[in-house]
């Protein structure tokens, strides 16, 4: 930016255009700057700080405890059995199960949707509708569908003469059952992203492939998949982060929002919520959010590395 003409007087109306533009830029940004500084950035530092205190909102004073909260967390994670340990394990399971299922399913659907013309738009909308529904509302619907005695799924199983399943009431089946809701709800979003990615692939590539007589699988493997890489990486990261932050479905689908049975569905964020707002161990809960932040940061950095790598 070059400001050459000198202002003759210091009055506002005699400023150069460039200077006035700078001033206006700051004026326009004033409220967003205050907002980000105070609502987004300062609280992040505050969370770090809280994690070093035995922070209890009921108390008049908050004693400084150094890294004790992190030590406690480490101890909990190394116990033979603890809710916190279960929460971290489950969260990893949600990511490891949920992300691949979500992406593969969405990619398959996108490829098929990309192929059809008739009914293409209504199908797209239908796939997308779950994404706009309230997770809490729809989690309750799923909870009812899973109800062992009168829920839809067991009614169907019975019609097909298959054994009845406990679903949410079984420590083994509960986590996949919760996951099914998340996949159901989130798939439409991934499908749209894939469709947009597919559209970015120049048609000439496919034409060339066809001339070469490449099979459908080869076309997919050597053209579609590599060229879809940005969308895949983007979704991979986005879905990983969203599974790391699981909360609402578990609260709505488990008895009294406890993340049961036997802590089989509880998540890190649910632990944070309970520790902070029901047990008032806000320092300890903050330490957990800091750990979550670090994990998400690492995932994001890996994303940046992948996406900046050029794709040929």
């Amino acid at each position: 930016m070059i400001v050459q003409s000198k202002p003759k007087r210091n009055g506002f109306f005699h400023w150069t255009v460039a200077r006035r533009k700078v001033l206006w830029a700051y004026i326009f940004l004033a409220i967003p700057i205050v907002f980000f500084a105070y609502i987004r950035i300062y609280p992040a530092f505050f969370a770090f700080q809280m994690s070093l205190y035995d922070y209890n909102p009921l108390a008049a004073e908050q004693p400084y405890v150094g890294l004790e909260n992190y030590e406690d967390l480490w101890k909990e994670l190394n116990k033979r059995r603890s809710v916190t340990k279960a929460a971290f394990q489950n969260t990893v399971n949600y990511v490891l199960l949920g992300v691949p299922i979500q992406l593969c399913l969405a990619l398959a659907v996108a490829l098929m949707l990309n192929e059809i013309r008739f009914l293409s738009t209504p199908y797209r909308i239908l796939f997308f509708l779950p994404y706009v529904t309230s997770t809490i509302a729809i989690a309750w619907v799923f909870r009812m569908l899973y109800q062992p005695q009168f829920g839809f799924f067991n009614v169907m199983l019975q019609l097909l003469s298959l054994p009845q399943q406990p679903f949410l009431n079984s420590p083994q089946q509960a986590l996949p059952s919760v996951l099914a809701l998340v996949v159901w709800q989130g798939m439409g979003f991934s499908v749209i992203i894939f469709l947009a990615g597919l559209k970015q692939i120049p048609r000439t590539y496919y034409e060339a492939a066809e001339v070469d007589g490449a099979s459908r699988w080869h076309t997919f493997r050597y053209i579609t998949l590599p060229l879809l890489n940005p969308s895949i990486v983007f979704l991979l990261v986005l879905q990983t982060i969203s599974f790391l932050r699981m909360f609402a479905p578990v609260v709505a689908m488990t008895v009294q929002g406890q993340g049961g049975p036997l802590d089989a569905t509880t998540t890190v964020v649910l632990r944070v919520y309970r520790e902070a707002f029901q047990s008032f161990n806000m320092g300890y809960a903050s330490a957990m959010t800091v750990v979550l932040f670090v994990v998400i940061l690492i995932v994001t950095i890996i994303q940046l590395r992948f996406t900046t790598r050029s794709i040929n």
């Binding site: 809710v83 406990p166 009431n169 079984s170 420590p171 406890q258 049961g260 049975p261 036997l262 802590d263 029901q278 047990s279």
Partner: peptide, 20 residues
Amino acid sequence: VDESAQRQVMLDAYDFVRLG
């Protein structure tokens, strides 16, 4: 000393028998 935690221990014990 911690009603919620102590209650949960009991609930879990029952579930260990019932579900586990």
